[in-house]
Design a protein around this nucleic acid. Structure first.
Lengths: 237, 237
DNA sequence: CGTCAGCTTGATTACTTTCAATTGTTGTGG
DNA sequence: CCACAACAATTGAAAGTAATCAAGCTGACG
């Protein structure tokens, strides 16, 4: 397997295009970081870290899409979060000194920078703006997790699947056609977002298609009527 | 309604007995805090703040028990967290500059100290040990929320109710008899932890009673066989 | 062209909710 | 202290929802 040699991405360049929380760092720190960090390529499907692994680094996605999932006691996957270009991964575990609590898998070929735990903790301690950004990130994650919890607990499958589609839309946006959700997932993965089975997901997606809210073409999902889909996600008529 | 006048609790005394995250503050800050904070009594059932209220303060429970819950779109309550003596409330909203995302209700008569947003934010900025403690708190809350999400999504009612009982046990502990969970909840509230209905909760608790894992006496719940209950919470035989 | 993984469909089963009715408990005012 | 009202707990039966099980089908790929 041949790999073209590439310079590790420059944090300065990265920040000029993307918008990571790390971009609040001083120019000096960014320069230094670029020299001390590592980076890796992950093919679609490859694991970046496993749930339970010792947490020793912070991951910053230079380019790509990643899912974070946990296994239930029955072995079923539950997707708990997504990360895309400019997002960071693993900070929760580093900050509470835990092992990684979820498994991170590349959903498409991804290029990911890696920052040692030590370096990250030092930055957090020395840069209060960064610390504040991270705190806000945690606070938002917590808010989202609690909202998701309620949705999962109180909504029926159609509502949850509709919501999952809207979630994917809000995170990954649309392709150039301004209709198609810019992420490709298997039916089973969608099921693992919504907390249901593959079969039920298929039937539900088909129903939403019959209603004209979405259009399915293989793994492509076009959103045709976002208002109705939103309504569907809330309360079943 | 007569109210005896009491001095606002001293933060120093409070920290000598309890163990709040605020106890990492310097003696000087604690003294100052004791003079600048407020405090309030809440009767059982009274609301400390409502979901959607503008977040203007941090609450520190001097004595009491509080539930944090959110309303689903269908109006059903979902309990998302508990807080007890020494715990703090509202930090998530303050830190991400949101309104309160949940409603806090006293589950028993409670005495709660209140710290202004400004004061709290200043402390966070000036005291890095406090900041680190708060970060860890957020990180733990997030971890717990994600775990709870999986449980809700993947477990059946019996497992979820068993887990809810274990959760109550882990948070509130036992009464002096070393058996009875040290919190009194209605069946409906237990249902709102586990994400099910009151009727199903009643039936499920009765089953767990028949199995000899717990003993129900009114609102008292005794844990008779914690190992079996734990096993039940995991995977249905 | 065969194979494998993912997708789809139908039938059946299991679990929960919902609805309805009854009983029990608690707090209040007379 | 009792009667009443309001709320909480309980039980049964019916209805609904989603999971499970069992086949086929389809498309990508070596």
């Amino acid at each position: 397997m041949k790999r073209v040699h590439l310079e590790s991405p420059s944090c300065i360049d990265c920040c000029s295009s993307g918008n990571s929380v790390l971009c609040s760092l001083s120019m000096e720190n960014k320069t230094d970081l670029a020299n001390t960090k590592g980076d890796n390529f992950y093919k679609k499907g490859q694991v970046i870290f496993y749930e339970g692994n010792h947490a020793n680094g912070l991951f910053c996605i230079y380019d790509g899409k990643v899912k974070l999932s946990k296994l239930g006691e029955n072995g079923k996957e539950q997707i708990v979060r997504f990360a895309k270009t400019s997002d960071i991964l693993g900070y929760r575990s580093l900050l509470s000194n835990d092992s990684y609590q979820a498994t991170a898998v590349a959903m498409e070929d991804s290029h990911v920078c890696i920052l040692s735990k030590e370096r990250f903790m030092n930055l957090m301690a020395s840069d209060s703006a960064l610390a504040m950004n991270i705190i806000q990130l945690l606070a938002q994650d917590l808010k989202r997790a609690e909202q998701w919890l309620i949705d999962t607990a109180q909504k029926n499958v159609t509502e949850r699947i509709s919501e999952a589609l809207l979630l994917l839309y809000s995170i990954f946006g649309l392709k150039k056609d301004e209709k198609t959700i810019n992420i490709s997932l298997t039916r089973s993965e969608i099921a693992n977002i919504a907390g249901t089975t593959t079969e039920t997901t298929i039937r539900t997606l088909a129903q939403l298609g019959d209603l004209g809210f979405i259009k399915l073409t293989g793994k492509e999902i076009k959103i045709l009527n976002i208002n109705e889909l939103t309504r569907k996600a809330r309360i079943l008529d």
